[in-house]
């Protein structure tokens, strides 16, 4: 990949990330508005999330950002070798692990009837507010999971194709990671931090 194409791909990815920030920003804004309107419902709902799995996932995703950064550093040496592929595969594997853990988390929530819609069951007066929390929870984490799936595919592509824009993909990966850093306290820690 020549120098000009490399510069183009990095600028293009930053612009795309600007788009993505607005995209997630809308959902986070909705979250902020409803949490401000329904503080007790959100605190109560947050208490029903799977803190352990969420924390584990945060660790997994942060580690994947480390391996991604190492892969990009290997690429920047100009003579990418085996180490680059190993770091990329590790990144994709950690991303996949996140998705698997997330899947178990969804299953547990399904078993507790916390999935919004006709099957939603929640005792007590705050039912509607708790349901709104879980609507936002599933929308946000669902869209984040879609982004992460695309990220895994991009990383695998980088591992196979020598001409892939690995720095741009790296930026994307760190962005998806950062979104989760915002989601983690908003989802799991509302009640737990008082």
């Amino acid at each position: 990949m020549n120098e000009r194409a490399r510069g183009n791909s990095i600028l293009g990815m930053w612009i795309f990330i600007a788009t993505e920030i607005v995209f997630f920003g809308v959902l986070l804004l909705s979250y902020a508005i409803y949490r401000w309107a329904y503080p007790y419902g959100f605190a109560e709902a947050s208490g029903h999330t799977q803190l352990l799995k969420g924390t584990l996932n945060t660790a997994v995703l942060l580690t994947s950002s480390l391996t991604m950064a190492l892969a990009v550093r290997e690429a920047s040496t100009g003579r990418p070798g085996k180490a680059q592929s190993v770091w990329l595969l590790a990144t994709a594997a950690l991303g996949a692990a996140f998705l698997v853990i997330k899947g178990f988390e969804y299953r547990a929530e399904f078993a507790e009837h916390l999935v919004p819609g006709p099957g939603f069951v929640y005792p007590g007066p705050l039912r509607g507010q708790v349901e709104i929390f879980f609507k936002l929870y599933f929308t946000l984490t669902g869209i984040h999971a879609i982004h992460l799936t695309i990220g895994c595919l991009l990383v695998l592509w980088c591992a196979r194709a020598a001409r892939a824009p690995i720095e741009g993909v790296g930026l994307y990966w760190h962005f998806v990671d950062l979104v989760w850093i915002f989601l983690y306290p908003l989802i799991y820690l509302v009640k737990r931090c008082g």
Binding site: A18, T19, E20, V22, F23, V26, L27, I143
Partner: peptide, 8 residues
């Protein structure tokens, strides 16, 4: 910066 808002 505008289009993602309508998309979501």
């Amino acid at each position: 910066l505008g289009t993602p808002v309508i998309a979501i």
